[in-house]
Structure formats: C-alpha cells, structure tokens
Design a binder for these strands. Structure first.
Lengths: 243, 243
DNA sequence: TTATATATGTTCGATTCCGTACAGTATTGC
DNA sequence: GCAATACTGTACGGAATCGAACATATATAA
C-alpha cells in the first residue's frame, strides 16, 4: 500500500484512520469532495428515519449512534470517533438510517455529500472495503452494548461509558450532562445522578455542571463491567484478523 | 437479472431468498460447494469467540444470534431465517465471530465451507452485494432489539419475540422452553414463566412442556411493544430502497 | 414400572429502577 | 443587576425484576 497522505491541500493534519489508510490514488479522487467542518456538541448529523444527505470522516471528537423509540426514549448502540465513518447505510446502498447520530464533544471532520461518495466508491476499492469492515466492527460493538444495557446496572454502565468515551477523545474532562448520559444509557436522569454521585464519592470522577472529569482511571475500570475490556479487545482482535 | 434457479441438482426446492436472488451464472459457481444439511433444534452453528468453519444459507427454520457474557448470561441480538445468511463476518474478511448462533427450530439449509466462500465471492458480485446488504439490515434489526431489551418489560418482549419467530417459521406451534426464552430475552426463567402465564390466561397463546402455540395473533400483537412492527417495517422499507 | 432428567408453577425477601416531583444551585440573557 | 433557563440533589411510593429455592408435573430411559 502506498504511503498515506499526511495532510489535505490546506495543510490541515488528517487524523481520521480510514482516510490515512487508503492509497494515495484513492485519496486524490476523494479529496476534492471533502470539506473540513466543525461539528458542535449535541449537533445531530443524522436524524432517525430521515434521508442521509452528508457523510463524515471525523478527525477528532466523538459521535454517538442512538436507537430512538416512538416515545422519545433512546439508547446508545455505538460510538464513532476518528477510527470510523458516519453514514454507513449509504455504503450499502441505503438512503435513510433508522438511527440518530449525535455529536458528543466538539469535533472536526470531513464532510462529503452522499452522491459524491456513491460515485467515488466504485473507483476506490480499498476505501470501500475498509468502510465495510468498519461497519461490521461497529455492528459487533453494538451487540455487546445491547447485552450490557440489558444485563448490567446503571453504575457499571456509567463507568463503562465514561471510560469508552475517554479512550476515544483524549483529555480527562468531557462535556456531559446527566440528562445526556441518561439518553445514552437508556435510563432516567435521576438514576444517573445517583450513580455519578457514588463514583464521585469513591474518588473515581469529579464533575460540575455539565462537565465530568476522570481522576482515577484504574478505580473506574474496576467499577465498570467487563464489557469495557470486551469491546476494547473486539476492536483490536478484529483489526488483527484482516491484516 | 437472470431468472433465479428453482432447485438444486438433486431436485430439492430452494427457498433461501439470497440464493434465489442471484443470477444463474453465480449459482453455477456456487452450487458445487453447497451441501444440503439438516440442522437440529438447539444446535450451535457458531460458538462465540471461535473460528467460523462453515457458513449457511437456511431454507427453512430459524437461527438466533446471541451475545454471551462471561457469566453465561445471554441476549438475542438477531434472527436469521430463509431471508438471510449465517456467517457474515467471513464476508468481510474476519475469521471469528464474537456471537453465538443457535438453531431455534429444526431447519434445513445449505452449508459451505469458509474457504470456498472466500474464493467464490470475488467471482459473485451480486451475491457479495446481497450479503453485505443483509449484514446491514441485520445490524439495524439488532439495534432495535437492543433498545427493546433495555426499555420494555418482559411481557411485551415475550409477545414481540413470539410474533417475530412465528412470522419467520410459518406454523403456529413452536418448540420452546422457558429456559430457552429466558436466554433470548436476557431474563431469568421464572420471569418468563409468569409472563407466559399471563399471555395464556389472556387467551393469546397456549403452551405445554416445551411447546408454545399462538392462538390469537391479533391480541398478541396488541400485547407486544411497537418494536414488533418497527422491525417489520425496517426490513420491508430497506428492501424497497435498494431496488 | 421405576428411576431419572427435564420443564414448569410459585414463593420469598432484597434490590434496582421507575415516574414524578420539588428544591437548590449555577449559568445565561436581558 | 435581575429574570429566566439549565443542571443537579434528593425524596416518595410503586412496579418490575432479581437470585434462589422448593414443589410439582411431564417426559425419557433403564
């Protein structure tokens, strides 16, 4: 494989791992259609049930994939950071997504409109393959989250969630409200409040209005369920299998 | 697209929708590697974490995709019948699966060994595309099940589960124990016992040792959560989008 | 038939979580 | 500054579920 591109035309450093992994030739194809954008906290990139207009390669920051029920309740079923791609249904020929995609921390990424991607894919086999594999990996992550959300209690899940986000963001402080966490964990805010309190009193995290800081990652890992490490291993093992 | 093959060389009627959907040329390629097999109730086709040796196209019957936690508890994250394919990770170049695949009712299908499929895929673009799309559809099903299993209570989920299986099997009586249902729904057996009792007393189902019969589908549908119809719509809408 | 394994009904207290409400505190907008 | 908004702590009764145990009934095998 050719050496990966290091920066786009404007000198911006590229961090998205999928874009870094494709050969130069494919990058040249893609490049003109990519637009660097800033994505704000809580911005909704795709609304559940609606047509997908743009797709995104994140450079930094984090997005959450949510299943939303008719009554408005939601559960997180996936996390997408710089290792991934936002807009997977398009890769497989679908026009809409049943899932909501929300930005979890201020992010930057490359936006591309759907039609450009569709045209491009035929000429970019490596990218296409990588996108498909990412879809599969994300799917596996979501099945583990499904089990976790069914079988583990709020405190364990909260610890697991904080660790997963922490790993993908880099930086110990994250902009999070209890209400938001409730939507991720599929529980009500006051349950989050109590769980967060316990973690704080145990010296694992501190938080103020809208911000959570991890202060003792080791302790927090002990408080989390095994799903945290299981998901970590999933990703790394599967990356190894396809080399 | 060429007319689909109607039967294999031995005159056996093919019911698997993926096999029916591929052009004759691809079928000719595939055909010699397929072996018709019977799959028994509760047979485990893939064990979580192990290498995948064979893949399957079901003709009839039903398989469940399960996430299994270290403590042995499990949750169903997908259902695969004659519309689908068992062994998706292989399609994307992965060798193992983190999921368990269990047969839920006596089934028949075509088995193929992994290496044959891998060789074949390059020459069968239509099949490959269909498999990829099925993977995406199944992924979406699993996200809905994730939300359902988190947010709805046992009685609704049990009704939903019975309806989904019923639709995919054809036949009102299904071989099911409460213990098995508990593993599907991610709950303990005695919760299933109580929920099943309620549905029975309400005249929706009857059951004896190891068998459940649906007697009033309409009522049962009312007792199930919206997830039942949501998943139905998912599948049909998405099929429409890619035509 | 008898013994054994399997499947189901039911109970117990304990725990978690629910829905909801209200009070207190911090931030934002004017 | 003040008012309005947003975020958090906490409480309440009630519901659902848990883990575990025991009794009973049905099927299977010896």
């Amino acid at each position: 494989m050719s050496p990966p591109p290091r920066s786009d035309g404007d000198g911006k450093q590229i961090s998205n791992l999928l874009l870094l992994a494709i050969p130069r030739q494919e990058w040249e194809q893609l490049h003109p259609s990519l637009e660097l954008v800033r994505l704000k906290l809580h911005q909704v990139l795709h609304e559940a049930g609606e047509a997908i207009k743009s797709v995104y390669f994140l450079n930094d920051g984090l997005g959450s994939v949510l299943t939303v029920l008719p009554d408005g309740k939601s559960v997180e079923v996936g996390l997408i950071g710089k290792e991934g791609f936002i807009g997977l249904p398009v890769v497989f020929g679908f026009k809409t997504s049943p899932l909501r995609l929300v930005i979890q921390s201020d992010a930057t990424g490359y936006r591309m409109d759907v039609h450009s991607l569709q045209k491009m894919l035929a000429d970019c086999p490596v990218l296409e393959k990588r996108l498909q594999q990412f879809a599969m990996t994300l799917g596996m992550q979501s099945t583990q989250l499904a089990a976790c959300n069914r079988l583990h209690d709020v405190e364990e899940r909260l610890a697991r969630w904080l660790l997963m986000s922490h790993d993908r963001i880099g930086g110990d402080t994250m902009p999070l409200t209890q209400e938001f966490l409730g939507q991720m964990l599929g529980t009500r805010r006051s349950s989050v409040s109590m769980a967060a309190n316990i973690l704080q009193k145990a010296g694992m995290i501190t938080y103020t209005r809208g911000n959570v800081t991890i202060v003792d990652k080791r302790k927090l890992t002990d408080a989390a369920c095994d799903c945290y490490s299981i998901i970590q291993n999933l990703q790394s093992n599967w990356q190894a299998e396809t080399k």
